[in-house]
């Protein structure tokens, strides 16, 4: 099973780099565990070419920072193709990417979005302490889920309520 883990955000804007940090840390772990068929990517934002990037994968997890104050650390939800036609900028939403993939390639893999709560967004490198704590929780959760053999047949076990 080919799994793509894709973090996005601007690591030069403090906690906006949570998605990128998640990918860096999980990539190290995957290498330590000698797990196969994991792919990693990281960028400032999602964009249209990511429809091509996800098209040949069996499972995709996007990871982004969140400003949502009610969020308890992190959450994971399944991404449906965007029903809203709001391709608002040179960046694209996860739902939009899924929609684009499905329209162009006829099908899209199951895609999940992990939101990790961030707090500060200034022009600085490095996560805040609270964001880092949330990152650790999210990493632990993900490692546990990805090690579960049911992940192949039931990727929905990744979900965690927001």
């Amino acid at each position: 099973m080919k799994v793509l883990i894709y973090g996005y955000g601007n690591p030069g804007r403090q906690d906006d780099g949570l998605g990128n940090a998640f990918v860096n840390r999980i990539e190290e772990w995957v290498e330590e565990q000698r797990l196969q068929d994991f792919f990693f990517d990281s960028n400032y934002q999602l964009n249209i070419e990511d429809a091509d990037a996800i098209s040949d994968k069996d499972l995709v997890i996007f990871v982004d920072a969140s400003k949502e104050e009610d969020l308890d650390g992190f959450c994971v939800s399944k991404v449906d193709q965007s029903t809203k036609v709001a391709f608002t900028t040179h960046a694209a939403s996860p739902g939009y990417v899924v929609n684009l993939c499905r329209r162009i390639y006829k099908e899209a893999p199951p895609v999940f979005l992990m939101h990790i709560r961030g707090y500060e967004w200034d022009f600085r490198e490095g996560l805040t302490e609270k964001a880092n704590q949330n990152l650790v929780k999210a990493l632990d959760y993900f490692k546990e889920k990805i090690a579960d053999s049911k992940i192949k047949s039931e990727p929905e076990i990744l979900e965690k309520a927001c």
């Binding site: 030069g12 804007r13 960028n43 400032y44 934002q45 960046a91 022009f123």
Partner: peptide, 8 residues
């Protein structure tokens, strides 16, 4: 550093 300005 200036790439922190904008991801576009």
């Amino acid at each position: 550093l200036v790439q922190r300005l904008c991801g576009i």
